[in-house]
């Protein structure tokens, strides 16, 4: 197991290195002069001397590999630059916004797990019945439904027509937990129901595969109660790929909140990314992209390790 963890961690470190290279390269290809981007000023009004001084100050007169090393050193010590839009250090901005996105993604993920696994299990147990047809149709709807459109429809029904839940804004859970949950429910539903479709499909196919195996037939022949067969034998054996999908999709959810945060006015990382693009605040944008990508790599690593811990065939492969 330790060998597997070491090997997989090494792979993740290589991927992390490549992620930083891609982010660094994107930053250098962005339109506009890097001096203007980093300093947050235009270069038009500067004399050649001032521009050269700024270039030297930000290390832009160095060769690209040196610039990369400088940048990565700063990233490692938490110096992610200053947001040109707010004047606040990017790291501080990210630290304020990341919990909002994390809470939204986690709530959406929980909704997806609850709805997806329940409907998936029901569809597999009651195969070729109206329950199966309904669940399969629900999954197809969920996969095809744009989450931002679902968000708009939820606002229309629950905020505009019924006046039950707020449509925009955010309240910290420390201020008022109930109001916080009220603000998060609709965006989390919009995100979670699309994800639930993915979990439902995976659960259904995994369950059906296990239900068709010989040991289930033997258990049935021995007179084992159906409840035990479903929960102890089938779901347990079908759960490995489901757990993997759940882990991988959580990482994706963190980066998938962009449009939903914009629609519901949630001040999370996704909204920060959009605002940064509009205001050409490239350091903040770089921060969001880097943070989210690092998070995805770490989540994927943890998922793989859990998978290997649960299934010896993976770590011995």
């Amino acid at each position: 197991m330790l060998r597997f963890i070491a090997h997989r961690s090494l792979q993740s470190i290589i991927v992390l290195f490549l992620v930083t290279v891609i982010v660094f390269a994107l930053m250098r290809i962005l339109p506009g002069d890097p001096v203007a981007i980093i300093a947050g000023t235009g270069v038009e009004g500067l004399t050649a001397e001032e521009e050269a001084r700024l270039r030297a100050r930000f290390g832009l007169d160095q060769p690209l590999p040196m610039q990369y090393l400088d940048w990565i050193r700063n990233v490692l010590v938490g110096d992610w630059g200053i947001s040109t839009r707010t004047g606040v250090p990017v790291w501080t901005e990210l630290a304020h916004r990341a919990p909002i996105t994390a809470q939204l993604a986690l709530t959406a993920w929980l909704i997806a797990v609850l709805v997806g696994v329940t409907t998936g299990v029901a569809a597999a147990i009651y195969r070729r019945t109206p329950i199966d047809s309904f669940s399969t149709a629900f999954a197809m709807f969920g996969i095809s439904m744009p989450d931002f459109w679902l968000g708009i429809l939820l606002i229309l029904v629950f905020s505009v027509w019924m006046g039950l839940l707020p449509s925009v804004g955010y309240v910290s859970p420390a201020t008022d937990l109930l109001l916080n949950l009220k603000h998060l429910l609709l965006p989390a539903l919009a995100l979670g129901l699309s994800e639930a479709a993915v979990f439902m499909r995976q659960t259904r196919s995994g369950m059906l595969e296990v239900l068709g195996q010989d040991f289930i037939r033997v258990a049935r022949a021995k007179g084992t109660p159906e409840r035990v067969i479903i929960w102890h034998h089938t779901l347990k054996n079908a759960s490995l790929p489901i757990v993997t999908i759940m882990g991988l999709r959580f990482g994706r959810l963190i980066g998938g909140t962009v449009v939903i945060e914009t629609i519901f006015g949630l001040p999370g990382l996704g909204r920060l990314a959009v605002q940064s693009i509009v205001m050409r605040d490239y350091l903040a944008l770089q921060g969001v992209v880097l943070l989210v990508a690092l998070f995805v790599v770490v989540i994927n690593l943890i998922t793989d390790i859990i998978y290997a811990a649960l299934d010896p065939r993976i770590r011995l492969a």
Partner: peptide, 18 residues
């Protein structure tokens, strides 16, 4: 793998901005 680590919509957002 590195490209896959970026959430698709976020990366496309950055690329279009670029």
């Amino acid at each position: 793998d590195a490209l896959y680590a970026f959430p698709p919509l976020l990366l496309s957002l950055v690329l279009v901005a670029m």
